[in-house]
Design a protein around this nucleic acid. Structure first.
Lengths: 221, 221
DNA sequence: TATACATTGATAGTAATACTTTTATATTTG
DNA sequence: CAAATATAAAAGTATTACTATCAATGTATA
């Protein structure tokens, strides 16, 4: 557990940030800064000041801030995938397995389970607020999509398979899986910024909403 | 019908773009340009060249391009709301009413129903690709949120009420409504850019997926 | 121990963006 | 026709998103 390293597509960085102190600082502090000031206001220059380093040094790790965001997102989904696989491994009952998976995928990241220099709570907030910006850009072409979003695809596929294991006749397992993943982030966003647009609050969690939604939708054997 | 004008929050513009030819040109061409090059690459300078006008003239209509995006989004949701209210008006059976509403909200905007200078097909694509960027920003503070997103809120509430009319005991009508609205845009995005992450394709529409999802979830009387 | 090599930091420079300001020229309206 | 208003053109500013160069430092190896 201590030495867990999340594998991230090599094309997302120039030099692996995990390979040096400076690199880890870049990752650690960029998460905190983007979380705090938002992706648009965040610049490599500001990050340089924060970590007592230089803009040009940061450019030796990441081509630009968009690639850095992709890196962070990939790391995040890799971390979620790891936790999901770990938690569902060994559960043979498909219903219980799916329940557990939904729980992991939609739960609030509360406790700081810092296994590394990454603050997962801040990263989770960052993903809720900024993840869409990583893929909603024209520059993402077909080749890069395959590599950059492979973890996310794997996650959707895993969930989709668990859905099908519960109800083989359900026709839209992939769409349901992607709706849960994206929808969960969205419900957390609404809860924080537009509370009238969601039933989620201190008492009702997105996990409850989505668990209920999925099991109402599926016909159990 | 011909003289239909979608009401947009006055704080979103400096001068009403509907009030002049230049204003209408700004709206018309900005939709086409953002659709084509993406919001990040789009600038008022480029728009000026396109419409044979000047950057500074555009700034007299919109404070900045983010406000323009908010304006376009508000116009879009106002247009959708109008169509939904129009289409569901007079339907007394709650199930049929909800069915119709989902259809309008999730259907592909195909035919160019140009009642104005607005190309709704391009605008729909723009919303699919860029809408999140209008609200996923730190600058949106509480006061402005209320005004800018009032139409979207009204839409979610209307849908939520129709859901409750079908099943009064369902506990998450608002979350389900917001999930459908956002999820529909997302499924269209996936269909276009990440087809393996959705079951929607030429044969299966997001409307079918969401209609099925909602009516499996709700217990009809 | 000397040298090579990689890493980082500091500085400067460029092109583009996101505006603001000023002034001149049309166009509309009273 | 005069006055007000809208638009266009040009120039200017601060910031961003980089790139390039060079010096300083540390580390690995012959």
């Amino acid at each position: 557990m201590q030495s867990l390293k999340i594998g991230v597509n090599e094309k997302l960085y120039i030099k692996d940030p995990e390979s040096s102190t400076l690199g880890k600082n870049i990752v650690e502090q960029s998460i905190l800064m983007i979380d705090e000031m938002g992706f648009e206001s965040f610049t490599f220059k500001k990050l340089g000041v924060q970590i007592n380093s230089n803009e040009s040094s940061i450019y030796r790790y990441f081509e630009n801030k968009h690639k850095l965001l992709l890196y962070l997102a990939t790391w995040y989904w890799g971390w979620v995938e790891y936790r999901m696989v770990f938690a569902t491994n060994g559960i043979s009952d498909p219903v219980k397995k799916l329940e557990k998976a939904i729980e992991i995928l939609t739960q609030n990241v509360e406790e700081d389970s810092s296994i590394t220099h990454v603050n997962e709570v801040a990263l989770n907030r960052l993903i809720i607020n900024e993840y869409s910006k990583s893929y909603l850009v024209k520059e993402i072409n077909k080749e890069s999509k395959d590599g950059y979003f492979i973890i996310c695809k794997r996650l959707v596929n895993r969930l989709s398979e668990m859905i099908s294991a519960v109800d083989q006749n359900y026709e839209y397992p992939v769409s349901l899986a992607s709706t849960v993943l994206e929808g969960s982030l969205h419900q957390y966003f609404l809860k924080a910024h537009f509370p009238t647009l969601t039933n989620c609050n201190e008492k009702v969690t997105p996990t409850e909403f989505f668990t209920d939604l999925i099991f109402r939708t599926l016909n159990k054997k």
